[in-house]
Write a protein that binds this DNA or RNA. Structure first.
Lengths: 187, 187
DNA sequence: AGCAAACATGTAATTAATTACATGTTTTAA
DNA sequence: TTAAAACATGTAATTAATTACATGTTTGCT
């Protein structure tokens, strides 16, 4: 959103900008690093591809909320380390402090497929449940393993409490999804 | 997606089309009715506005997957009752039978805000948790009440098993979200 | 030495989704 | 009776997100 008089602003509802500010607040990093964060630590709660990240970094920089420093890795691999400006930090704080009064819209294709089958004894249901069970069970194990390796001791938890929180939440969510599926699975 | 030679097709990944086919398979209905379904029975698992629904109905009709009948309510209120064609039903069945091997991307702005706060004792955390607790508690009560009114007896559950399933799943999800919040709430 | 995977950055094209614009009818409650 | 809410259908404009295109470097393995 480019508003009047060439001043760059971005719609208040665009969450990606705030998430990028939040990540950069944790530590200055490159677009590539941000893209990895969307696949790993925060991937359970937001997703963005590099094709969305790089343009957003430019917009945030044009808006004066972040700056970058050019560095070179090895002989000539160019990197851009982005950092929050005071303006950017203010904007981040304002977003975090602002209430989040809407329920996040959830989408779940699988549940809708079940819904459309309707008949409780349709022979397709059990194989579908088994497939989903395996999928979510695998994901759960993956998350649990990450918790074990990343948060081996209490000290690490306190140091990166936010990270611990979201991983815990993701594990809880996945655990209950698996339990819900199991409940309808015939042994 | 309009492909070669003017034949209308829609990208295979576009889920909205299948969901509309699924809803029309349950019973012929209008675009307006579909929009309400996205706010009520399936609103916990997919969302679409009427501005997305009406164009999709036209595309599905052009593709020969649905047809409509013009009716008039009262004196002159025009309605279009849409119905699945055999082609449409085939496509629906194919989609339902097809595996759903991807984990649905979840987004949760609130959890990310917590993540960005990081410090376990930040004074902003408790009010934020309370706000979310109230929001999700209210939603949970709303869902539970719907289950009570819609599925008063066993017979109704069997008759609309799919509907019961997704409502049950939505209630479970909300219950555990509320429990997770409560766990971090100081009394 | 050579090859694949990971690192690193960008743009273009397309599709999905939201928000706003636009119009008219019927029902319900004050 | 009259005003608001719900019924009903559409399009336009914008924004968000995905997929595809495009290029080059560095690391790690065989």
């Amino acid at each position: 959103m480019t508003s009047i008089k060439g001043k760059i602003t971005i719609g208040q509802r665009n969450r990606l900008q705030y998430i990028i500010l939040g990540l950069l607040n944790q530590q200055p990093q490159t677009g590539y690093d941000l893209a990895k964060a969307f696949e790993n630590e925060i991937g359970e709660f937001w997703q963005a591809q590099h094709s969305q990240i790089y343009p957003m970094l430019k917009r945030l920089e044009a808006a004066g909320e972040i700056t970058h420093e050019d560095t070179v890795a090895g002989e000539k691999l160019a990197k851009k380390q982005y950092t929050l400006t005071p303006t950017g930090r203010e904007k981040l704080v304002a977003w975090v402090s602002q209430p989040s009064p809407e329920l996040t819209p959830n989408k779940d294709e699988f549940i809708l497929k079940l819904y459309f089958i309707k008949k409780a004894d349709d022979p397709r249901i059990q194989p579908m449940l088994r497939e989903q069970y395996q999928l979510h069970q695998a994901q759960l194990q993956h998350l649990q393993q990450r918790r074990e390796t990343v948060f081996a001791d209490r000290a690490t938890i306190d140091q990166a409490y936010g990270h611990y929180l979201i991983l815990d939440h993701a594990i809880e969510r996945e655990t209950h999804y698996v339990e819900w599926l199991a409940q309808y699975l015939k042994k």
